[in-house]
Design a protein around this nucleic acid. Sequence first.
DNA 1: CTTGCGGGATTGTTGAACGAATCTCTACGG
DNA 2: CCGTAGAGATTCGTTCAACAATCCCGCAAG
Lengths: 233, 233
Amino acid sequence: MATTDPSRPRTVVGEVSLAGCSSTAERVADVLRRRITEGDLVPGARLSEERLVCELHVSRNTLREAFRLLAHEGLLVHRLHRGVFVPELDEDDLVDLYRLRRTLECDVVRSLEDVGAVRLGPLADDVADGETSAARGDWIAVGTANMRFHQHLVGLLGSRRVDEVTGRLLAELRLAFHYAASPQRLHEPYLARNRALLELLTAGETERAAKELAEYLDDSQAELLAAYRLRRA
Amino acid sequence: MATTDPSRPRTVVGEVSLAGCSSTAERVADVLRRRITEGDLVPGARLSEERLVCELHVSRNTLREAFRLLAHEGLLVHRLHRGVFVPELDEDDLVDLYRLRRTLECDVVRSLEDVGAVRLGPLADDVADGETSAARGDWIAVGTANMRFHQHLVGLLGSRRVDEVTGRLLAELRLAFHYAASPQRLHEPYLARNRALLELLTAGETERAAKELAEYLDDSQAELLAAYRLRRA
DNA sequence: CTTGCGGGATTGTTGAACGAATCTCTACGG
DNA sequence: CCGTAGAGATTCGTTCAACAATCCCGCAAG
């Protein structure tokens, strides 16, 4: 950089410097990830390099590296010579995502055996978080808790790769939530169902849990599809 | 670039410029991908930025972009301030990969219905390719044909995301093949089993095909694990 | 043998520059 | 009036050179 530059571009990405040893690109990606999942950047929006360089005080190269990171997660798409965009999911994408999700989650639940209460701890926390957030009326937080519930559910399997795929899948799915007019209508029904699922798991009834989960996901998919169709009219 | 530079760094990445409109980074990634899957770069090897910049005649930034691409595919791992490496898979990774693979592939097969003969065309081609390669004694090509067979098998579902995950999974799995002492011993048994699988699918016997596939993958996993243990002694 | 401390090597990040592709807006012709 | 071709502006793709931050290796001291 020019020796006369008085600013310190290094440590001012958004807010705090997150957990210890992350690169600048990762921190930039964190900022953008939040903006996307929280709806600040809506599907279809283009992310201008120039503008974000100014805004986040990082170099173009670093920003582009962050773009790659997020593209990898499915939260951005890269179009050659055109820039990066927040992806727009159509109904086929939704069906595709839910199909993979059903396969993975149900398989995880089915192959679970004697899950100790300890390992279900995080799940119980997520359920509780969802309920308190709902009481506060913070439906975005309810959505977050729900995502975490499912991530932890899959995590019970202890497979790094399944966790990764699920993470990406849920992040992408979250984009679709922005098409729903009412977050409450979208998330509320699943508070009780998550709790029910948790109880089935606690009781060790994996087969029933898997079936319940399959129906759960079918309903969720139908709900979202309905929201899509409503929006198009 | 400096205006006095007489070389044309743009079009000399390895060999030909591949399919029409790919970025330089993608072409670099193609070159490196081949080197990795063909065993030119063995697991554990570090890829020096400086050396590859000289070798491939691209800038560091572009090379780093290629690294990200391959890291995304699981063919490279990035360690902060340490560089990128060809990942070393241990036995747990193998089990993990096969677990996901079994889940996905079996689920695909099970949910297949009235697969037209047309759609099985690519699969038949892959089986034939494998057999002719085997006759030639080219066991690396047999491995490639086998990977393609499974990729095409999964492709029957028509799910973009399942295809993607499978692609990454198979690429990573291929790294493990380098641990096997004899490629022939590794791949030969599956020539016949692929053909058998294809016939079951042609006959529409999806349930039997799924069961056969599950056993198939179990055997394959056991074989690879045995090779691993052998190597450690 | 372990611990602590350089010094060298490599990665991380920056800023500026230029070629190439896309987009936009105007002007022209049907 | 509409559609299209072209020029200009915008933005991306890639390169380069420099500096900062971090890691690795060898060596000395305890």
